[in-house]
Computed example of a mutant assay.
Amino acid sequence: MSRVALVTGGTRGIGQAISVTLKAAGYKVAANYAGNEAAAAAFTRETGIRSYKWDVGDHEACARGIAAVEADLGPVDILVNNAGITRDAMLHKMTPQQWREVMSVDLDSMFNMCQPVVNGMRERGFGRIINISSINGQKGQMGQTNYSAAKAGVIGFTRALAQEVAKKGVTVNAIAPGYIDTEMVSAVPPKVLESIIATIPVGRLGTADEIAHCVVFLADDKAGFITGATLTANGAQYITG
């Protein structure tokens, strides 16, 4: 029987590539989304992957959404916490709402999504939790104190949970993408984008497919000795020890 994978923010951008690549690898995939119903409907028509709407910043909504996925497809074996937003501003101009929105979606979602599935994974003796962090959670980024703090928190959460569930056959890892060629990055003014690419030693943006293949690698049954790790995929723009 195919394992079930749930991808948050799974109908667009990097999440869409993750969902499609997991399906191609033989998993039964469910894709969560927050609000763009037209995009989600088009995604489901084109890929055959079921999409489910809920707010990952809402604990009760996550519990209900996960229950719906499991009723349709079976217990979640692979959870990919990909959903994330930005609300960029310099700290002296940042509003409490901008701070809270990013923390809710990018960091609170770690608890909201993992807590309802982790007991089942422990009981079954298998699970893969893969959390999407960011290069800016590793090095920080001006104008992104909220986002950088949340994505750094994702890495800390990953390391702690990995230790809690390691003996139960559950791995917990993070991926920290650099600048990826998504709609959001493509919307950056050309001169700014050129300056960003100039700082990437490989000389280009990453692709969503490249991040998706990192996910498939970590999700594999044979990746059981890799846990608590952060896989950087940034073209050598930021090298960690």
Rank of each mutant, 00 (worst) to 15 (best):
S2A: 08
V4F: 10
V4M: 11
L6E: 06
L6S: 11
V7D: 01
T8D: 03
T8I: 01
G9I: 08
T11S: 15
G15P: 13
Q16K: 15
A17T: 10
I18M: 08
T21F: 00
T21A: 02
Y33I: 09
A41Y: 05
A42Y: 02
T44Q: 15
E46L: 08
Y52N: 12
W54Q: 06
W54P: 03
D58P: 10
D58W: 04
H59A: 14
C62Y: 06
R64H: 06
I66N: 09
A67N: 11
V69D: 09
A71M: 05
A71N: 12
A71G: 14
V76L: 11
V80M: 12
V80A: 14
V80T: 11
N81M: 04
D88K: 09
T95Y: 09
P96A: 12
W99Q: 06
E101V: 04
E101D: 14
V105P: 09
D106Q: 07
D108R: 10
N112V: 05
M113W: 02
C114W: 01
C114E: 08
Q115K: 13
V118T: 05
N119K: 15
N119C: 12
G120R: 11
M121V: 02
R122M: 15
E123K: 15
E123C: 07
R124A: 15
F126R: 07
F126A: 05
R128D: 05
I129C: 03
I129Q: 07
I132V: 14
G137K: 04
G137P: 04
K139G: 04
V154A: 12
F157H: 08
T158E: 05
R159G: 13
A162P: 06
A162R: 07
Q163S: 06
E164R: 15
V165D: 13
V165L: 11
A166Q: 06
V170R: 07
V170S: 04
V172G: 10
P177R: 07
I180H: 04
E183I: 00
M184H: 09
P190L: 04
P190C: 04
K191D: 14
K191C: 00
V192S: 09
L193S: 02
E194P: 01
S195L: 00
I197D: 00
T199F: 03
V202L: 13
R204Q: 11
L205T: 04
A208E: 12
D209P: 02
E210S: 01
H213W: 13
C214R: 03
L218V: 06
A219K: 07
D220P: 03
K222Q: 13
A223G: 02
A223F: 04
F225N: 08
G228L: 10
A229H: 15
A229W: 05
T232W: 00
A233P: 02
A233E: 06
A233S: 14
G235M: 07
I239R: 12
T240L: 14
